[in-house]
Nucleic acid binder design. Structure first.
Lengths: 224, 224
DNA sequence: TCTCAGCGCTAAGAAAGCGTGAAGATGAGG
DNA sequence: CCTCATCTTCACGCTTTCTTAGCGCTGAGA
């Protein structure tokens, strides 16, 4: 579970934050001033820092700079100050997010989740269809039984639409207009030809497809 | 220069954002509805997306989900809705930041800088090396079999884009617009000529390339 | 049983894309 | 003004991809 360092000189807010974070199973550590925060962060590096501006000893941007000197840990800043320049200064100093007090606890938690999500081990968003097939939409690469499969541009275009709507039926009309253009809505033959090509390249048994399924009279569906 | 996709159905706000972003030397592209945005993002992947909720065709979270299906590009959401649940929903759907209208332009720019800063290549991938080939992107130096190779500026530009996306297919359109400009998207000749030059200089067997690969109809790919 | 619409599949000509060599155009530096 | 590296443009042969037509299968309804 993620380790979060909360830096605040207000004991009450510190307590409220700790309780809420622990309730969501975060590993919470606290510091009441800037120098303690920097020392603690260096001895036990956290996965995220919640930093209240207006600490007794150091200026907020100093704390941010002190952290940014050696780590890229996400920093979420809390502040009572509304001014735009305060926000801009903090963000440009290296903060990742800035909330103005009073803030909603739900929003803070969502922003923490968003910040933590970014540093998660970068799973490459490859859509993996159960058995021996991997489809990487951003790299435009497909592997079947750990061997690369080459698709033509039109085949890609078609497959892309299907894969972006996993499990959902995509209508013939939609497929034809998106791939060939609105003038081709009646050329259902094109679909048959290219679906056949995709099945031949991607399915183990093209005549009994498991992933590229026909919905008679409606269209086609990609089943992960 | 970072490419930013602005998605908004309000022409006035779209214009204001474009002007401000262009003034800061961002490469701005726009879309007025969700489906256009998704299509544009897939053909020319942006470095950041500014997304106004309340589009005419798709729900905001649908657009976010559509992007998150295949990319981790930072998404900054704009919305007129103040409610916490709206923020939480958008952030949990995969957004990186959420601003409530009316917002300050300076703050938005600072948040964009913060979001872009996070995904900047952390100077760690400056050197790419394969078996007999070393490419130092920051020093602009290439060694093949421990002998220096000289590239022309255009060749560098092209190679740089390919190497910065190792293993990924980079579309013809993207290469042409980034190297020669948007007016040259049809000049596929240029690509062929310069790819041939790169292969002649970098590959051991230019007619059977191992690193600079052609993906017919789609584009080219650098294989480390 | 017959008809017919929808689907799977194949094949061949047309069109587009690719690699290559080479010839002008351009522009910076001497 | 000349030289040289670089960029643009073109033409040719070759390969891949797209389009189109045709044939067979199946299941529903008359």
């Amino acid at each position: 579970m993620s380790r979060i360092l909360v830096v605040d000189d207000d004991p009450e807010l510190l307590r409220a934050l700790s309780i809420n974070l622990r309730a969501r199973h975060y590993d919470v550590h606290t510091a009441a001033d800037g120098s303690t925060a920097l020392r603690q962060a260096s001895t036990a590096p956290p996965d995220l820092v919640i930093l209240d501006l207006g600490l007794p000893d150091l200026d907020g941007t100093q704390v941010i700079a002190g952290l940014r000197g050696w780590t890229r840990v996400p920093i979420v800043v809390l502040s009572a100050r509304e001014g735009q320049t305060d926000k801009v200064d903090a963000l440009d100093a290296g903060a990742d997010d800035y909330l103005t007090k009073p803030f909603g606890m739900d929003e803070l938690m969502a922003r923490i989740r968003a910040a933590l999500r970014r540093v998660q081990p970068g799973q490459d968003t490859a859509v993996v269809s159960t058995d021996h097939l991997t489809i990487d939409l951003s790299a435009k690469r497909i592997t079947k039984d750990s061997a690369d499969v080459r698709l033509t541009p039109t085949e890609w275009h078609l497959l892309e639409i299907l894969v972006r709507n996993p499990g959902k039926i995509v209508g013939r009309k939609q497929l034809l207009t998106e791939v060939w253009g609105p003038a081709y809505v009646t050329e259902t033959n094109y679909l048959r030809v290219y679906i056949a090509g995709l099945r031949r390249k991607l399915e183990h048994n093209p005549s009994n497809p498991r992933h590229i399924l026909t919905e008679p009279g409606l269209g086609y569906r990609f089943q992960p």
